[in-house]
């Protein structure tokens, strides 16, 4: 079964107006974003490991990833889930497991075993994609993206000439 969010938007809505469901979904969405950021950090670290002169930021990226993983802790697994969020939590648990394995590989400088590390990161990416599809959220934080959400930034037309302050 595929998760083609671009074609078939999907989210779990079996339970509506349930405060607990909203809380759990919000918590899981936070986890998706956190793991997404770790995945981004690890992807760059992996690239940096193999490129001479590009690994100067490796330690900073590593620290940031460790901070994120520590801050989110085991949040995804810490209590019984409603059916609507259990599936997403399972995918997030797998993503976390893959990311922690990748973290250990980086710490042991085993990152040079590139194929295995790439496999872990690719699998984590897929699990995150599945979790975000189930939750109806984005894998990565796009809140600062481009012009921002389209309709929140709709611009009215008030003229056609450039006015650059002159």
């Amino acid at each position: 079964m595929g998760y083609q969010r671009g074609l078939v938007p999907f989210s779990c809505n079996e339970v509506t107006n349930a405060v607990e469901l909203q809380e759990q979904r919000s918590e899981l969405e936070t986890l998706v974003r956190a793991y997404g950021e770790v995945l981004a950090l690890f992807s760059f670290m992996h690239l940096g490991l193999r490129e001479p002169g590009m690994n100067l930021l490796f330690a900073q990226l590593s620290c940031r990833a460790a901070d994120i993983l520590e801050s989110v802790g085991q949040g995804g697994d810490r209590r019984r889930r409603l059916a609507a969020t259990e599936h997403a939590a399972r995918h997030l648990g797998r993503a976390r497991s893959d990311l922690l394995q990748a973290q250990r590989a980086f710490e042991g400088r085993l990152g040079r075993q590139s194929t295995e590390l790439l496999r872990l990161l690719t699998r984590a990416s897929l699990e995150l994609k599945r979790a975000s599809a189930l939750l109806g959220t984005m894998t990565f934080d796009a809140s600062g993206c481009c012009a921002g959400p389209l309709f929140a930034n709709a611009e009215e037309t008030h003229g056609s000439a450039f006015r650059l302050g002159a």
């Binding site: 995945l39 992807s43 690239l47 193999r50 590139s114 990565f140």
Partner: peptide, 14 residues
């Protein structure tokens, strides 16, 4: 930026 794109760069690098 789509961070996932970096994974493909990594794969291409390997």
């Amino acid at each position: 930026l789509n961070p996932a794109d970096i994974l493909y760069l990594t794969q291409a690098n390997i």
